[in-house]
Design a binder for these strands. Structure first.
Lengths: 369, 369
DNA sequence: CTGAAAGCGCTTACAG
DNA sequence: CTGAAAGCGCTTACAG
């Protein structure tokens, strides 16, 4: 099938001829300074020996001519782009994940790095091929380092990351997973999320609650380590975990809408728990709001513990008691680890850090009467 | 100052020697297939003429050997990276801006593009040098197109974008600005935000309100076109705009916290307005929540109109009447314009689209009694 | 239909 | 201290 190309309008051809848009190159600067490209390159990068006189003249000329080295070309000859670190994360949500990204990105930017985010918008997080394409795209940029939010990331993705590492790239993983570390030998920071749920459960148990519900955003149903750790905590107090109080979710991160649905479901329950743990504050806020409108009083009739300590938590209708995710610490550790590897040339064993959340008491919980 | 480099540990030198990590290159494939690099390149790209026999053998070999072209190298020889479009945006917030990004990114990803986000976390939006570095970094990647969220972006940033365009790059701008288009000849989609405020004002005026307050997130104080359009709307109804009801903000995007503060300020007012327009739903939700706790009844004592139609709007304590920002339409238009330029080779005049918000009625407004 | 060769803009041994 | 030259991995006129 032949596509007929209409000829370009004359002015366009004309313009192309007039402005070849030759951005100024190293060669141009070298010529102007009357030195070789080698010397110019050395002067610019400060790597080889150059007399300070020629260095200055090159630098001045480069500045005047508006020269800046083409990162692409440098990359091709050089191997790795020293001043960019890529952020890999599946979802861009409207809560912790993005806040985490904000923190890390801002700090790295301040340190002079270029910090592109490779994410997938908000769908398709489970699609392996999507995840693979995403890493490939990032790795192809040859950043100095990759900081990877590993929640939801499939095992297969770590293979290219491992290769990237073997090629000399730095990779740092963090996650709010189930307390498992990623299958890759790199610096890792894990937020022990299951423990947080256990912690929330214990808090409620100590308030006298024995009938506790669980709602975990982003998973079909509370499961795995998170479920187990809660179950353990409850067992200590001789409280069972009832299956009908393990609330379901369709795996998307809609937060508010999910909270609302949860509330509606809750209202239909024959037998209601006296407390519920909700895995996200936006979700919890909507949950409480809907219940409030339905006449259920929080915390008098129902205690609620949120999660994340989101911006909304202190300012919900009833300020949310929540277990905070350590976003700041995670960002801090990521930066620290990166620094130690690039600045202090640390090349020892990968470090693995486990961070815990903590209960932040506000007003959505009360002792069981 | 001499930095003393400790010699590398032996095993490291050893490893470097052992695994030069030669990723397979075009040359490797060509050699294996017994053809020239030219032919291999043609076979892979489908550009020149190649007999189908050799094409197939090259393709098969490439696949077997796990070859994929190095985008960096292609870029250097080729000019532009056809399958990546860069997203430029100053802030990553936890509301509309990020939602907009999610939508655009996901769609472009689905179309096969690599879509890195160049943002700055959440600080320094006013800092020109930061903004400039950000564009430079993006442009240096030579994406096929740049989609730029222009809110908050300084004029100077459009200069490099214009050069990028002159070099053959596509740039598309969108924004929730003051209805002004960006100073660059490119496709643009503007959400007429000032009109939305006027629209909100008119809605309240028709409900009988004459005493209307205004809170605009992200600006020091309501100002410019937004302020004027509200003033105009109110003048039609013979209602003045009182200066003490133009609430201040420090220019950051904290939403919930801002809403809470606004509420506290509101409670100290000698004379309260009967309605207030709040520029963001998360902010409005917190505002209403705090007021509710303070015993002010919404909408009976105070009508509130939010903005953005955020996820929280339907699920706030009192579901928020709001004027919705057209995020979906903006995403759609961006995609459309991009498609027409790359697929249908449209190269006519830049298109400028103005989109409007619309009132979504829920329960936070009531007629003035 | 195929291939030798130049070139993209830089960096970096290596030899003065 | 300086420069000629090779090379990074591809693409693309151009000449068979």
């Amino acid at each position: 099938m032949g596509i007929i190309q209409t000829p370009k309008p004359v002015w366009e051809i004309f313009e192309t001829m007039i402005s070849p848009r030759k951005t100024v190159t190293l060669a141009d600067v070298a010529r102007a300074a009357n030195v070789s490209k080698t010397t110019a390159s050395h002067a610019l990068s400060g790597k080889g020996y150059v007399s300070s006189a020629t260095r200055e003249s090159v630098l001045r000329l480069a500045d005047e001519m508006g020269f800046s080295v083409d990162p692409i070309a440098r990359l091709l000859s050089n191997g790795r782009c020293e001043n960019t670190v890529g952020l890999y994360t599946l979802d861009l949500d409207l809560s912790q994940r993005t806040r985490q990204l904000q923190l890390i990105q801002a700090q790295l930017n301040d340190m002079g790095y270029s910090v592109p985010i490779y994410a997938y918008g908000y769908r398709g997080r489970d699609d392996l091929s999507v995840q693979m394409e995403l890493v490939s795209g990032l790795i192809a940029q040859r950043p100095a380092a990759i900081v990877c939010n590993m929640s939801g990331v499939r095992k297969e993705v770590f293979e290219p990351l491992r290769r990237f590492q073997a090629d000399g790239g730095i990779v740092i993983c963090y996650g709010y997973g189930y307390g498992e570390f990623a299958p890759i030998e790199c610096d890792q920071i894990i937020y022990a999320e299951p423990e947080s749920f256990a912690c929330a459960a214990r808090y409620l148990l100590e308030l006298g609650h024995r009938e506790i519900g669980l709602f975990s955003v982003g998973h079909r149903k509370p499961q795995g380590a998170m479920l187990e750790s809660v179950r353990d905590a409850m067992r200590e107090f001789g409280a069972p975990l009832r299956d009908e109080w393990l609330f379901e979710n369709d795996g998307l991160l809609r937060y508010e809408e999910d909270g609302h649905r949860l509330a509606n479901h809750f209202l239909t329950l024959e037998k209601r728990p006296s407390a519920v743990i909700v895995a996200n504050d936006y979700c919890a806020a909507a949950f409480v709001a809907t219940l409030t409108r339905a006449g259920v009083r929080v915390p008098q009739e129902l205690s609620v513990v949120g999660h994340d300590n989101d911006a909304i938590a202190p300012y919900a209708v009833v300020p949310l008691t929540t277990v905070s995710a350590p976003v700041e610490e995670i960002a801090e550790k990521v930066i620290e680890m990166l620094q130690s590897r690039v600045l202090r040339n640390y090349s020892g064993a990968p470090r693995k850090i486990l961070l815990r959340g903590e209960i932040i008491q506000r007003q959505s919980c009360a002792p069981k009467n």
